[in-house]
Design a binder for these strands. Structure first.
Length: 429
RNA sequence: GGAGGGAUGGCAGAGCGGACGAUUGCACUGGUCUUGAAAACCAGCGGGCCUUCACGGGUCCCGGGGGUUCGAAUCCCCCUCCCUCCGCCA
């Protein structure tokens, strides 16, 4: 969430920034009003408390001195004040909760240099690599769900039988390719990122920390009986891992990575992208994540983007990098780069990574701070995340790009060590 | 799932209705001493919010939430987590 002090001192600047997303800014005015009330009521409450505390001290002293009469007079006065304190305290708590609720619904401010625009059409293409629209042969123009069926490596029908539409099942070499991609994604970042295997079912507070709740509850799977949520991305548990903690500056930057299943209800996209692996409710992803100081954030953003892009490049996939327009950046992000792979069979760009710099927005929600060396006090960390490798869409890109004239699929060089030296997935006899 | 025990500052560990935001030890930081280091000694040593140009002042925080009381770390209730035992189980 945003710093209430900033809203207080410069509400117009905040509104201008939020307006760049196309978001309604009236919530900011409401927050500022609530904040003023919180402080007014809080000050009055503290004042009364101060008097009650002083009186109680006197009462104690009088009792010790055996002056019970004088004490009981003060007790009555204190008791009367207590009533007033109680109602003020209740009011202050209510206002405080309302303010937090208000703040939780306001998105992060886009970075000043994030591109203008409200829709994905306004995203800026930073670079395109390896893509020649006319350079694909006919045998590459077969969508992966058909290739998958022909080769017996993707069984959507049976997955749908078990779990409903938008679920997928990989078989044989297809499942092997999947695990190879996961291990490939982890191994190439092992030099700097600590691998974490977090829980994938988490509490409500954990989901609030990243900004996935309270606003986007329709997008997540909820296990009602135990009030737990299936994570939509490893970003959720990785952020909350150190929630409420004060980190040492020497621990920063803290680089983490995790492979998890990710669960998304895709509430707003029923009936869209339902073919194959374009959009599924459950998928595997290797996530790259970092906590750092504000000074380190810019370089860390570039580092994660570079690692994510290198992973795609080394697989030999045509791809492009987009600098997202303000309106297309997700709620917690201030600046986001997307990486899209071109899938010649599906004949479209598939988003395979989204690398976001969340400034201190998530750190505020989850209360994650660090102690700057040589300074007193604490500061909020910056958090960054990016998909190191979103498996199904990369899988799709590979199967389509590497399809041979005879229908088999060649395995990219970089993945062969992860597939026991297998060089191709053959057409079944 | 049942029965018992516990949760206090970075760690260890007192306090069990009033002078306690909290004794003490360790750790940490600064100083004295020393050629330097160690030791010793002295001092400092949590966070949030409000207020102040500043010095400072106020308030809250002893796992979380409610209650009793003039006053709660201390008493009562609920919850969470941890430990021990029993049951069940990959």
């Amino acid at each position: 969430m945003l710093d209430i002090k900033l809203l207080r001192t410069d509400p117009d600047a905040v509104k201008a920034a939020i307006a760049r997303r196309g978001d309604d800014t009236s919530g900011i005015d409401r927050a500022v009003e609530l904040d003023a009330s919180v402080r007014a009521v809080g000050t009055e409450r503290d004042d009364i408390r101060s008097r009650v505390n002083a009186l109680s001290k006197e009462v104690g002293a009088l009792h010790r001195d055996g002056k019970g009469d004088e004490a009981s007079a003060l007790q009555d006065e204190s008791k009367a004040l207590g009533e007033r304190e109680k109602s003020l305290a209740a009011e202050a708590d209510e206002l405080q909760a309302a303010l937090r609720q208000q703040l939780l619904h306001i998105a992060n401010m886009p970075a000043p240099d994030a591109p203008d625009g409200l829709t994905e059409d306004d995203n800026i293409v930073v670079r395109v690599e390896g893509h020649d629209p006319d350079g694909y042969a006919e045998h590459q123009k077969v969508p992966h769900w058909e290739v998958g069926e022909q080769l017996g490596i993707l069984d959507v029908d049976r997955a749908v039988k078990m779990s409903g539409s938008m679920f997928a099942m990989y078989r044989g070499a297809g499942a092997h390719l999947l695990s190879a991609l996961i291990n490939y994604g982890l191994d190439r970042n092992r030099d700097a990122f600590e691998q974490i295997r977090p829980p994938t079912v988490v509490k409500t507070d954990t989901m609030i920390g990243t900004g996935h709740l309270p606003k986007f509850s329709d997008d997540a799977y909820h296990l009602e009986r135990d009030d737990l949520w299936a994570i939509p991305t490893a970003e959720v548990p990785l952020t909350s891992m150190v929630a409420g903690e004060v980190l040492d500056e020497s621990e920063l930057p803290m680089r983490l990575m995790a492979h998890t299943s990710c669960y998304r209800r895709e509430a707003g996209s029923a009936g869209r992208d339902t073919r194959g692996l374009l959009r599924v409710h459950e998928f595997d992803k290797v996530e790259l994540y970092a906590f750092c100081t504000p000074d380190q954030a810019q370089a860390m953003h570039m580092e994660i983007l570079e690692r994510a892009e290198n992973a795609i490049r080394d697989l030999g996939l045509a791809h492009r990098v987009l600098d997202l327009a303000c309106g297309d950046i997700s709620g917690a992000g201030a600046r986001t780069y997307d990486i899209e792979v071109f899938a010649p069979g599906a004949d479209r760009w598939l988003e395979v990574s989204s690398v976001s710099w969340c400034t201190d927005y998530q750190a505020r929600r989850a209360n994650i701070r660090y102690r700057p060396e040589g300074e007193k006090g604490t500061q909020f960390v910056h958090s960054l995340n990016g998909s190191g490798l979103a498996v199904p869409r990369v899988w799709a890109g590979i199967v389509e790009t590497y399809r041979q004239p005879d229908g088999s699929v060649k395995i990219p060089e970089a993945l062969r060590p992860y597939m026991g030296g297998v060089t191709e997935i053959p057409v079944p006899a």
